[in-house]
Design a protein around this nucleic acid. Structure first.
Lengths: 116, 116
DNA sequence: CTGATGCGCAACCAAACGTTGCAGGAGGGT
DNA sequence: ACCCTCCTGCAACGTTTGGTTGCGCATCAG
């Protein structure tokens, strides 16, 4: 299993989507179906170079892929990889959720026991 | 609404759970129902001081709460706040998922149109 | 050819994660 | 009481990372 205390699986993926700027970039790329460092930077509060670095990170973990077109470099989201990332989020979320429920159950059991 | 491109809601929460060490700490605190900087550091690949700083961060965003007990300072997870964090994760995840599905639908529509 | 546009590289800053080292407070022996 | 141990807190330091500016180079449009 892997739902236990271990999530060393894809720390890289996590740190990639852990950055707020990168999350917004993925959002923009999804909404507009692609973009370049320049077009993205125009809709973000950071410079083109910062965006370029982030695109490099996202590319390295496979969340986006680049296609040079003339003098510009167009990026688009890799659907499969993003789906994997979403699964990771859901996995961690549900793991925590399960533990919270379990704790709540135990707490209620103690409550009952103390009423004897 | 807020499901759109905007998730400026709680960037703090995100960056808190964005760190892999802090995620593992939350895991440990959930499993063992609490702990101190020392006990946690023994089960993590970092020093006690690093853990202490992380606990400070988690405390500041309300994900954990401290209770001084004699010479030690015991921390436990704040259930409600962690539940909120889980909701955030699910929110972003489902937003991306929805866009992925939408893109897939459009792609299929184009496929059909081109077959005319 | 010239000018505008888009990219890449390098130097530099600030914040964050992690380390070591040291001083201080709270319990437990004898 | 005393000493010893354990846990905490603070400070200095190094390294990685997100961000900036400035420059040089390639590519399209007039």
């Amino acid at each position: 299993m892997s739902t236990a205390t271990a999530e060393k699986v894809d720390d890289e993926l996590w740190s990639a989507i852990g950055d707020p700027t990168r999350r917004r970039m993925l959002d923009l790329l999804l909404v507009e179906g692609g973009g370049t460092a320049t077009t993205l930077s125009q809709q973000l509060p950071v410079t083109r170079q910062a965006v370029a670095k982030h695109l490099g990170v996202l590319d390295r973990v496979g969340l986006v892929r680049a296609t040079p077109a003339g003098r510009e470099k167009r990026y688009r989201v890799d659907d499969a990889q993003l789906a994997r990332a979403v699964a990771q989020l859901a996995s961690v979320g549900s793991a925590w959720d399960a533990r919270l429920r379990r704790i709540k159950r135990i707490a209620e059991a103690i409550q009952r026991a103390q009423q004897d």
